[in-house]
């Protein structure tokens, strides 16, 4: 077994063990961190590995959240099919947005994704009759059952979040060693050269964005089902900035970075929101500080200093 496999399986094992020892408040927090870390993993595939700096990933998270949430609210289809529908919604949206947005690059790509995401956010407000807009809606606990297991119960919720996170983490580890994952990196590093090696970079970027969108939606749909709530704020600009912040902090283009970044930022904001309403100040300071002093993030620094082959 390689060192990196030990590291990532080790993280998964530790998180599993924590289920039995954490006090209730931390137990709930880590379940939330694992769910959101899946979002960061999805974002990292587009941004960290393929170099697609999107400012609109909240639309994919929201596609999952509302895709699953609205079906649970208005139909009796059950949590698992609704979850699958949430993933499909995220993938379809990513495909549609990608076909348009990937005709641009760099700053234009950032603004185009920001605008599409803003349109999705506004659409959620506009169709407030169904979505209940900013206020959002609660998903009844009767709808949050899979195979007779109540996902609203802390133990079940933690383990489902853990399972989802483990799958996403191992998927990313597998993807980045695959030829297609390697080409994503090549596109990030030098797209022109990748084209002249015969790679259809547009199609590959689209593939990367769709994978990223589906994983982001997987996080959003899981959030809706596990925590029983869907609200427009999850589609707002702030929720597009968060995954970027988590990934930058943890280390863009690393497998473990998204989790580290989500964990640290979650606790920073959790602690500071106890002190002040202006807890987003932490996010602002972190963004500036990371840009200036540590563009590689935590795992990126580890890779640079100690562990050259950290995936």
């Amino acid at each position: 077994m390689s060192r990196s496999l030990i590291l990532h399986l080790g993280l998964i094992a530790v998180l599993f063990a924590l289920n039995f020892v954490l006090p209730p408040y931390a137990h709930g927090n880590i379940a939330r961190v694992m769910t959101l870390a899946v979002y960061a993993i999805g974002y990292n595939i587009a941004f960290g590995y393929t170099g697609l700096l999107s400012l609109g990933h909240a639309m994919f998270f929201a596609a999952g959240m509302y895709g699953a949430g609205l079906l649970l609210r208005f139909t009796d289809m059950g949590a698992l099919p609704a979850y699958a529908a949430g993933l499909a919604a995220g993938g379809a949206l990513a495909l549609a947005v990608g076909l348009l947005a990937l005709r641009t690059a760099g700053v234009s790509f950032m603004i185009v994704t920001l605008m599409f995401s803003q349109a999705v956010y506004l659409a959620i407000l506009y169709f407030g009759e169904w979505t209940r807009g900013d206020e959002g809606f609660v998903i009844a606990s009767a709808d949050r059952m899979i195979a007779g297991v109540d996902l609203a119960a802390p133990q079940a919720r933690y383990l489902v979040a853990w399972g989802l996170f483990s799958v996403a983490l191992m998927f990313l580890l597998w993807l980045v060693r695959r030829p297609s994952g390697r080409v994503f990196v090549a596109i990030r590093e030098n797209e022109d050269r990748a084209r002249l090696l015969g790679y259809d970079t547009f199609r590959l970027k689209l593939l990367s964005l769709v994978i990223s969108g589906v994983i982001s939606a997987a996080s959003g749909a899981a959030y809706a089902i596990l925590f029983g709530y869907a609200g427009a704020s999850f589609a707002g600009v702030q929720y597009s900035i968060f995954p970027m912040l988590w990934v930058l902090l943890g280390g863009a283009g690393t497998v473990i970075g998204p989790f580290l970044g989500t964990l640290f930022m979650f606790y920073l904001i959790d602690l500071s929101s106890g002190l002040t309403d202006a807890y987003m100040l932490i996010a602002g300071v972190a963004l500036i500080g990371l840009t200036l002093f540590a563009p590689q993030g935590i795992a990126g620094e580890i890779r640079r200093r100690f562990w050259k082959d950290l995936p």
């Binding site: 390697r182 090549a186 590093e189 030098n190 990748a194």
Partner: peptide, 13 residues
Amino acid sequence: VFSRLSAHENVAL
């Protein structure tokens, strides 16, 4: 070339 990748990975791509 892909300047931040290894020579091996450049050729492998």
